[in-house]
Simulated assay, not measured.
Amino acid sequence: MAVFFDYDDTLINTANASKAAYESVAELLKAEGQYASEVDTIIKAYRELLWSTPNDSYKVETPKKIRVKLWESSIQKCVHSKSCSVNHIRELAEKLYDMWYTTRLGAMAWIEKETVPTLLSLRKKYKLVLITNGSSVIQWEKIKKMEAQKYFDHVLVSGDEPYDKPHKSIFIKACTLCGVLPETCVMVGDNLATDILGAHNANLLASIQYTGSSKNKPSPGNLSNDSASPRFTISSITELFSVLEEIY
């Protein structure tokens, strides 16, 4: 028997940390004066560029180099009517990245105070595997920041694998590492389109959606074609004990 866990917004508060980071960036932009009216537009442009950046890009360049360029592009798109030198925009982009990065990483914490005790208790009975999407360097930085790897038997980052969740291969690899069959495993995650659909694709025994994070999630009754319905839903990680007892 094995239990697989998503990381971002299932075990750690990534959404809240990102929110704090963008708020810090907004204050920095406002302090610059000439960008005060463009703050929301610049941040929106950056977020769109960030989400559209392929994970493979981070295998070629460092996250800082890539993301400074994204901040530069965002500023240039939004303040094209202002006379700003290339050097000024570059310097500002580096400041924005440093503020965003430092604030975001510093604000990351376990999503619940019961998270670690729950993992320690579950590991006495089940094999635990962390399965997270994202570039290798970025995800491992977050994992090591929380020392999360010591609470799991195995850690799989999609950036180190051929495919992201919801492709079944990363789940099957987790099963193989644990020496168990897919039909004896359970997936716990917040995202219907990656965690829950991935569990379905890999024919796992059950999927459990965690709804305790601050992110907005589609309800099981309003699913897209790119998502699946969880067998169970929990709002606190401690609910896992009773749910797993019911499953097994």
Results as ranks from 00 to 15, higher is better:
Asn87Pro: 05
Asn87Leu: 12
His88Met: 08
His88Asn: 13
His88Thr: 15
His88Arg: 09
Ile89Glu: 00
Arg90Ile: 08
Arg90Tyr: 06
Arg90Gln: 12
Glu91Thr: 10
Glu94Arg: 13
Glu94Tyr: 05
Glu94Pro: 06
Lys95Phe: 00
Lys95Met: 03
Tyr97Asn: 10
Asp98Ser: 01
Tyr101Asp: 02
Thr102Glu: 11
Thr103Asp: 00
Arg104Cys: 02
Gly106Ala: 00
Gly106Trp: 01
Ala109Gly: 05
Ile111Met: 10
Glu112Lys: 02
Glu112Pro: 05
Glu112Ile: 02
Lys113Thr: 14
Lys113Met: 14
Thr115Met: 04
Leu119Asp: 09
Leu120Pro: 02
Ser121Asp: 10
Ser121Tyr: 15
Arg123Asn: 14
Arg123Asp: 12
Lys124Glu: 13
Lys125Asn: 08
Lys127Asn: 13
Lys127Ala: 12
Val129His: 08
Ile131Thr: 09
Thr132Gly: 04
Gly134Ile: 13
Ser135Arg: 15
Ser136Met: 03
Gln139Met: 14
Trp140Ile: 04
Ile143Gly: 01
Glu147Asn: 14
Gln149Val: 05
Tyr151Ala: 01
Tyr151His: 12
Phe152Pro: 11
Asp153Phe: 08
Asp153Ile: 12
His154Asp: 09
Val155Arg: 11
Val155Glu: 06
Val157Phe: 14
Val157Lys: 01
Asp160Trp: 12
Asp160Leu: 10
Asp160His: 09
Glu161Pro: 08
Pro162Val: 15
Pro162Asn: 05
Pro162Arg: 05
Asp164Thr: 13
Lys165Thr: 03
Pro166Leu: 09
His167Gln: 13
Lys168Pro: 05
Phe171Ala: 02
Ile172Pro: 06
Ile172Val: 08
Lys173His: 13
Lys173Val: 07
Ala174Gln: 14
Cys175Lys: 10
Leu177Phe: 01
Cys178Phe: 06
Gly179Cys: 14
Gly179Arg: 04
Gly179Glu: 13
Leu181Ala: 11
Leu181Asn: 11
Pro182Lys: 02
Glu183Asp: 14
Glu183His: 14
Glu183Cys: 14
Thr184Glu: 06
Met187Ala: 12
Val188Thr: 02
Leu192Ile: 00
Leu192Pro: 02
Ala193His: 07
Asp195Pro: 02
Gly198Gln: 02
